[in-house]
């Protein structure tokens, strides 16, 4: 659970601490040799060597970041479109699709992306974007539909255009719900991206797969620690962001 910090500057302490820990872990992984020795006494190699952890971290963040950029822009656009008068016809279908799509297992989506798109970074980004799209669309729709009708009527009453209503009233009011959707989407994707290692995208999933294949627990732990720290850093960033939003 993220801590609730009262004084504004120290609110960033938590995410900064996790991020610092993440970078430190990425840099210092080879130094913790005694720990790996204890974890995997029989292993020939104690620390994953094929790529530096900071490189893997960079690739992992890039994959998730690219997917998040696609997800957020597409998801917001779709959510906004179907809640406008012009796109309202599509609302039931899109809403149904967003909940139905959640039932598609990520591995299966990933596996289906490969025949269509080949191996490497591209299919995993596409699969993650598709999978992450659903929470964003769902929360955008829920957030926009949850805006108090009186506020919209009032906005119309003071003479705002449709665009002004959207940007100045509806989106700011729906923002906390939308942000929660983005948070879910990205957190899920940080973990799911590890599966990308099975389709040839190199990221923090690599040491885990290598560890499983070679029976080397040290590798698995190294990958897991990095992914967990990344997830916690991002999650605590979002938590600060959401708190700020609630306060305004």
């Amino acid at each position: 659970m993220p801590l609730r910090l009262e004084a504004p500057p120290s609110r960033w302490l938590m995410p900064a601490a996790w991020l610092g820990l993440l970078l430190l872990a990425g840099w210092a992984m080879p130094l913790a040799e005694p720990l790996w020795q204890w974890l995997a006494p029989d292993a020939r190699q104690l620390v994953y060597q094929r790529a530096a952890f900071l490189t893997l971290l960079g690739r992992h963040a890039l994959t998730v970041g690219l997917a998040a950029a696609i997800t957020v822009s597409l998801g917001l656009a779709a959510g906004i479109a179907v809640t406008r008068a012009a796109g309202r016809d599509f609302l039931p279908l899109v809403a149904q699709l967003a909940s139905l799509g959640q039932t598609f297992p990520p591995v299966a989506v990933l596996a289906l992306a490969v025949p269509a798109l080949g191996f490497g970074l591209f299919p995993i980004v596409v699969a993650l974007s598709l999978y992450g799209l659903l929470p964003v669309v769902r929360n955008t729709i829920a957030g926009l539909k949850g805006v108090d009708a009186a506020a919209i009527t009032a906005a119309r009453g003071v003479g705002m255009t449709a665009g002004q209503r959207l940007w100045q009233v509806e989106l700011p009011l729906a923002a906390p719900v939308i942000l929660a959707g983005v948070r879910t989407s990205i957190t899920i994707n940080i973990a799911t991206a590890a599966l990308g290692a099975t389709v040839g995208a190199s990221n923090l999933g690599d040491p885990i797969i290598a560890g499983i294949v070679n029976g080397n627990t040290a590798y698995v732990v190294q990958g897991t620690v990095m992914i967990a720290l990344l997830a916690l850093s991002v999650d605590s960033l979002f938590s600060v962001w959401q708190q700020r939003m609630r306060r305004t």
Partner: peptide, 14 residues
Amino acid sequence: QTVPSLALFGLLLA
């Protein structure tokens, strides 16, 4: 739940 499923499987190996 934030531990990737893949990792959880791996961690139980040893």
